[in-house]
Design a protein around this nucleic acid. Structure first.
Lengths: 229, 229
DNA sequence: CGTGTTGTTGACTCAATTCAAGAAGTGTGG
DNA sequence: CCACACTTCTTGAATTGAGTCAACAACACG
């Protein structure tokens, strides 16, 4: 009873070169699910029976301290997979996942996937490449958290959101500021303050969820100099 | 001209079930190298032509800020591989590597390895498992850096160094304290101070590079309570 | 037995957080 | 359409954890 809508998962690099029969095998036990904003998708520590492809919306992966403080590890945007890094080792999820905005996902059973993985070189190599990239990103995060100031991290985040190419750029924040703040390891208040400074310095212009980068060069200089007074 | 000494790499899980012919193929362009304490092994950003198996000694993987500050991402101990997470994507090393103590490594050319990887399911899956584990560790580090205080991280480190099982335990620090401090995201002075507090609280006993955990229960309580006053 | 490295301790500083209050935006139902 | 409740965001003031700077102790080593 396979729906056409499941085929959207082909947008994921992970499934790009999959043989039709393998894809069918994987999608046999897949289903589309909807999650309302704030609704939990899976919990850290629970057994990983499925991983996910995000069709639309946005999802945050996060950890909680014993006191309930939250650190967002990653924000997932449409057309990427999440929770797949754990398919091995009979794993448990290392993070909590919850919808940030109303979201639609394809839920893929890990057991079917791992059999495909075992037989399909290409998919295993793609997965390897994917994990390798996440590893680099995480190393970057650790370095950033320890070697950069809050201001530098905010500036770095803004620059990372710019489409490549020079000159001005506009970025639209699809997720609330407090989620972004947690993602870059800063309190929401601090995030707000840094934006205020950048705004009054004429580096950016903020209007609601839209930020204009007015002077990218200056912002880059600010990131690797001024943010550390 | 293959030396027997190269066969030590079989201690690495990555090579455990490799066919003799594959292993020979990989080791054909491998060689043993010695590094003196503090000697650099590879640089972040440089092209990754080789990865490494540590035979003896210890190695630190680290990043540098523009101002030369250092963050240790990982400390490598004998019988594990490092630099292998980057064999893909025609990669560049994401970190610097340098010997902490005089070290002996086996240097393995990535080009030969990646051909083995492409043909050998089993190795690819092992590699996947290895990367998955590192991913979890890195997520743990990010969470720890943002959700725990310096004191909690120090206590957590000590507990992580204990052999499992209850009661007292002795740990011998094989690497200088400033390296450990950087690894857990704390300045050397702070590390020293926390140890002093734990010592005067009767939780541990320090003698040079040897630390006795006198009351593990109390240390655990301290980690998830007191370290956050 | 000096010279350099590594570790400890004290006094001071400051970046970022916490607490608090209010503004701005969003959605619901009468 | 407005009033109310609710969440998100901004700004100010006060606090503090951990860092910096500095001096010295304890080693290690040629």
């Amino acid at each position: 009873m396979m729906q056409d809508s499941l085929l959207v998962v082909r947008k994921a690099a992970l499934f790009a070169n999959l043989l039709p029969e393998d894809l069918e095998q994987i999608l046999k036990n897949a289903r589309v699910r909807q999650f309302k904003s704030h609704e939990p998708i899976f919990s850290a520590g629970s057994e990983a029976r499925a991983f996910y492809f995000l069709v639309s919306g946005s999802v945050r992966l996060f950890r909680l301290s014993p006191q309930g403080e939250e650190k967002v590890i990653e924000v997932i945007m449409p057309d990427s997979t999440f929770g797949e890094g754990v398919v091995f080792l009979g794993g448990r999820y290392p993070v909590h996942a919850a919808a940030v905005t109303d979201s639609e996902v394809v839920e893929l059973a890990t057991n079917h996937f791992s059999s495909v993985l075992a037989s399909n070189h290409d998919t295993a190599l793609r997965m390897l490449a994917g994990l390798s990239t996440r590893l680099h990103q995480l190393i970057q995060d650790v370095a950033s958290l320890t070697l950069e100031s809050a201001g530098q991290r905010v500036a770095g985040y803004l620059l990372s959101q710019c489409p490549p190419g020079g000159g001005q750029a506009a970025i639209h924040m699809m997720i609330p500021k407090n989620v972004i703040a947690s993602r870059i390891g800063v309190k929401a208040e601090t995030f707000s303050r840094v934006l205020a400074v950048l705004r009054s310095g004429g580096l950016i212009h903020v209007a609601g969820n839209d930020i204009q980068i007015l002077d990218r060069e200056a912002l880059m200089r600010w990131r690797d100099g001024v943010g550390r007074p």
